[in-house]
């Protein structure tokens, strides 16, 4: 009973935390410098990871689909499948999970560390809203950066796919691109890409919550990092189910 109560209390607290952050994003003064710092940290610094993972995943996916499609003589479908898979689902989801791992841990541990080393108190002592300066900027940066990273992931995977296909069947770049984009529609690209903003909100909110509210030594830092990654990854996958449904609702033609 108390566990259930704790659970709901927790959900309520995290939700309020997220809502407060979103509201805070629209209340001046804006912490521009800190926001840009987080763009650099979450976006730019994640880029190598995203590009490498996307490329590798593109190669792997391409090899797998080739193995299957060759049996049906449908190799021509490989680029189409690759783009459909990545634009619709794999790109957004994998990006979000990778960022949840890298950035979620960093935010959780970083904020907890700042709390423990009284950096947050130091900020507060300057009459600066540490929540806005540290949490809102991170959450908004996550929301902003994830779609961008997703685009990188999508294209890196296409590059990987092309690399793999070119190595096996010497397909030309133009043909690969044409067939990759032939059946994809904006509704397969824009909504799935933008939905990663929701994943960004999840990552920022969950890890921000753990980081900002934990106030206990190195143990706390560790736990905040772990909790951030685990919970935000889980939530991303669960929420993705809902988001896919929502996208189908608004773009009924895109249900594949």
């Amino acid at each position: 009973m108390s566990m259930l109560r704790d659970f709901f209390t927790f959900i309520g607290k995290v939700s309020c935390f997220g809502v407060k952050a979103l509201v805070g994003a629209f209340q001046p003064p804006l912490e521009w410098e800190f926001f840009l710092g987080q763009i650099e940290e979450i976006g730019w610094r994640s880029l190598p990871l995203i590009l490498a993972a996307g490329f590798a995943l593109g190669v792997v996916m391409s090899m797998h689909t080739r193995g299957t499609l060759v049996q049906f003589g449908a190799e021509a479908m490989i680029p189409t499948l690759q783009s459909a898979a990545f634009f619709n689902e794999l790109g957004p989801l994998v990006t979000a999970l990778l960022v949840a791992g890298r950035v979620g841990a960093a935010i959780g541990a970083g904020l907890t560390n700042m709390r423990v080393t009284e950096q947050i108190d130091a900020i507060e002592s300057l009459s600066v809203d540490s929540f806005k300066m540290l949490v809102v900027t991170r959450i908004v940066a996550c929301i902003f950066v994830l779609p961008l990273l997703t685009v990188f992931m999508d294209f890196a995977s296409l590059a990987g796919g092309f690399f793999s296909e070119h190595a096996t069947s010497h397909i030309s770049l133009q043909l690969y691109m044409t067939s990759a984009f032939k059946t994809v529609e904006w509704a397969n690209f824009i909504p799935p890409t933008l939905k990663t903003s929701v994943f960004g909100l999840i990552i920022g909110t969950v890890s921000g919550y753990f980081g900002y509210t934990t106030n206990e030594g190195s143990q706390g830092v560790q736990r905040a990092a772990t909790n951030s990654v685990v919970l935000s990854s889980l939530l991303i996958i669960v929420v993705d189910v809902i988001l896919v449904k929502v996208i189908f609702f608004f773009f009924p033609g895109q249900a594949i």
Partner: peptide
């Protein structure tokens, strides 16, 4: 008011 925190609390 100036506040010197226990561990310095410099923004890292």
């Amino acid at each position: 008011i100036g506040f010197l925190f226990q561990s310095g609390a410099l923004f890292d």
